[in-house]
Computed example of a mutant assay.
Amino acid sequence: MVAIARTPDDLSQTPPRKTRPPLLRRAPGPSAGLLDQEPRPLAGRLRAVRRLVSALLWTLLCIPIQALLLVLPGRGKLAFPRFYHSVLCRLIGLRVQVVGGISTARPTLFLSNHSSWLDILVLGSVLEAAFVSKAEVGNWPGVRTVARLGRTVFVSRSRGRTGEEAAAMRDRLQEGGSLILFPEGTSNDGTRVLPFRSAFLGVAEAAAAVQPISVVYDRLGGLPACRRDRAHFAWYGDMDLGSHFWRLARQPGGRVTVLLHQPADPRAFRDRKALTQAVERTVAEGAAELRQNRAPVPLRAR
Rank of each mutant, 00 (worst) to 15 (best):
A3F: 15
A3W: 15
A3H: 15
I4T: 10
A5R: 12
D10M: 14
Q13T: 11
T14K: 14
P16H: 08
T19C: 09
P21T: 15
R25K: 05
R25S: 10
A32K: 10
P39Y: 02
P41D: 10
G44M: 09
L46I: 08
R51A: 02
L52V: 06
A55L: 12
L70V: 00
G74F: 08
R75S: 11
R75V: 09
K77N: 06
L78W: 08
I92Q: 08
R95L: 02
V96K: 08
R106Y: 05
F110Q: 01
L111W: 05
L111R: 00
L118I: 03
V122H: 02
V122E: 02
L123Y: 12
V126G: 01
E136W: 05
N139T: 12
P141A: 04
P141H: 01
G142C: 11
T145D: 10
A147E: 04
R148D: 04
R151S: 11
T152P: 14
S156A: 12
S156W: 01
S156R: 06
G160S: 12
T162Y: 04
E165P: 06
L173T: 07
E175H: 12
I180D: 04
I180M: 13
I180P: 03
F182D: 03
G185E: 04
T186Y: 01
T191H: 15
T191I: 04
V193G: 05
P195R: 14
R197G: 04
R197C: 04
F200N: 07
G202P: 10
V203D: 03
A204L: 00
V210D: 01
P212T: 11
P212Y: 04
S214M: 07
D218E: 10
R219S: 06
C226V: 15
C226A: 14
R227T: 09
A231E: 10
A234G: 01
S243A: 11
R247C: 11
G253S: 15
R255V: 04
T257F: 03
D265K: 07
P266L: 03
F269I: 03
L275T: 01
L275Y: 02
Q277P: 03
E280G: 06
G286D: 08
A287S: 09
L290E: 09
R291A: 15
Q292T: 10
R294P: 07
A295T: 15
A301E: 06
